[in-house]
């Protein structure tokens, strides 16, 4: 149990609930999500220092909300598909494949970046190097490293988001053609 986070949770829980309710207006669902957030806090390593716990809580709550909305959307589509195929809803090989594709796309997106930007991002994310060490290795300022990191994550997010839209329409059309095939 992380004391500072738990304390912050109690301090800010009513505003966090307000934040959740804006996007999940169903109040029992919003309260479930707040409870889920609390459960996650319990798993957080207690020795880590958090200097901005309120920002942390909002980030965590936001991830849970966006995740929930996405699941809902996906579930609705699956449910319709499953009902028509009379099959149970389950995680299909397509989903797993989707994750693999996402990582490949990410790798490809990183390769599109300028060399120093790529290096800074890979070193920071994959090798978990500190920004100061990266600055020394690349012989640039720490500010420049931060700029590379911003540009890298922005570019990758854009590429993944573009691909999601394409995949979404693809898998959607392939699903309906599959159904036609069944009948």
């Amino acid at each position: 149990m992380h004391e500072a986070l738990t304390q912050a949770f109690h301090q800010f829980q009513s505003e966090l609930l307000g934040f959740i309710r804006k996007r999940l207006p169903d109040s029992s669902q919003a309260e479930d999500l707040l409870h889920e957030l609390f459960l996650r806090l319990e798993r957080y390593p207690s020795d880590k220092v958090i200097k901005a716990p309120r920002a942390y809580l909002y980030r965590a709550a936001n991830n849970l909300i966006v995740d929930e909305l996405r699941k809902k959307k996906s579930y609705d589509q699956r449910f319709v598909a499953a009902e028509q195929e009379e099959a149970p809803v389950h995680i299909s090989p397509e989903d797993i494949n989707h994750h693999q594709q996402r990582l490949k796309l990410l790798d490809k997106a990183i390769n599109e970046l300028p060399e120093k930007c790529q290096k800074a991002f890979r070193w920071h994310r994959i090798e978990q190097l500190d920004k100061k060490i990266i600055a020394e290795r690349l012989e640039v300022s720490v500010n420049m490293v931060e700029k590379h990191l911003r540009n890298a994550v922005k570019h990758c997010q854009q590429r993944l988001s573009e691909a999601e839209e394409t995949t979404f329409s693809d898998s959607h059309s392939s699903k309906s053609s599959q159904q036609r095939h069944h009948q």
Partner: peptide
């Protein structure tokens, strides 16, 4: 980080799209 658990599952349901688009 711990909130990775919150988002990891979303990989399976990655129908992400910016509403603005």
């Amino acid at each position: 980080p711990w909130w990775a658990w919150a988002v990891a599952a979303s990989l399976m349901f990655g129908l992400i799209s910016a509403p603005g688009l």
